[in-house]
């Protein structure tokens, strides 16, 4: 189940999409999502799909891999769909049973909303699949940097993200070890009602918290010993640079916008 989630995973590669500047990728992803929300008819979504397919093609990721990432979302999708069908007011009744009336407007709304969600997830997945968490953090730090002037903790946030990314595997491993150690003492994490199960988590969570605090303490000490003093005057090993690739990508995105706007005006 956990393996199905493609959102947030990195799929290493060396495609032009991988090589793009992460800032550019991040901004273009945002643009794409805005674009998708502007679309109001099915041909428009076909365009969005075509565009996405093209990007995925260039990135070397299998499209089926991306689709697999939607699987864990199926409940949310169904839920969104039903909610929209049920709560959209409409005139053109297609179908009626008792209280329930299925209108054309509701159906359209439901379909569009679900499609937007699908494109939102797939679009961000393309970003995270082709951009390592490190690059993503860098991009965020750089993009947020101008805000630092107004007291926004851009560097601190990026540092926190980096440290979180660094320690997630360590803590997962540790959680597994502690869980096994408690099971060796007869702890039962699997049976009982909800309350009993929640209570059974205490022997796992307390040690995990204790060790996280110790790790945080150690890490703070180690960072200090290595001359850490916040974001000021700090240089970076990797500097981000926009290249021609990013320019081409920008052109593609502009073309996409032109197409969906033109299509929207033509077909209403």
């Amino acid at each position: 189940m956990l393996n199905d989630i493609t959102l947030g995973q990195y799929y290493p590669g060396n495609s032009p999409v991988h090589r793009m500047d992460p800032r550019c990728k991040l901004l273009l992803t945002v643009a794409y999502i805005v674009g998708v929300f502007l679309i109001g008819n099915l041909p428009g979504y076909l365009l969005a799909l075509a565009f996405l397919w093209l990007v995925v093609r260039v990135s070397g990721i299998r499209f089926s891999y991306l689709l697999r990432g939607l699987k864990p979302l199926r409940f949310i999708l169904v839920f969104t769909f039903i909610l929209n069908v049920a709560f959209t007011q409409g005139q053109t009744v297609l179908f009626a049973v008792g209280f329930f009336r299925l209108t054309r407007e509701a159906l359209e709304n439901a379909i569009y909303f679900s499609l937007r969600l699908v494109f939102l997830v797939m679009g961000t997945s393309v970003l995270t699949l082709t951009t390592s968490p490190v690059q993503l953090t860098d991009a965020l730090e750089h993009l947020m940097h101008p805000l630092a002037r107004f007291g926004f903790p851009a560097h601190e946030l990026a540092m926190m993200m980096t440290i979180a990314l660094r320690f997630i595997p360590t803590l997962l491993e540790e959680a597994d070890k502690i869980q096994k150690a408690q099971m060796a003492r007869g702890a039962d994490f699997e049976s009982g009602n909800l309350m009993a199960r929640a209570r059974a988590m205490i022997p796992l969570l307390v040690p995990l918290f204790v060790s996280s605090f110790r790790r945080a303490n150690d890490l703070a000490m180690a960072m200090e010993a290595r001359c850490y003093r916040g974001g000021e005057h700090r240089t970076r090993l990797r500097e981000l640079r926009y290249t021609r690739l990013d320019f081409y990508a920008l052109l593609c995105m502009i073309a996409f916008f032109v197409l969906i706007i033109a299509e929207g005006m033509l077909l209403g």
Partner: peptide, 19 residues
């Protein structure tokens, strides 16, 4: 679980499991 009471296992750095 019954087996785990008969075969006791002390993990590496077992103090990390105290809670």
């Amino acid at each position: 679980r019954a087996v785990r009471f008969r075969v006791g296992l002390v993990f590496q750095y077992p103090e990390n499991q105290l809670f």
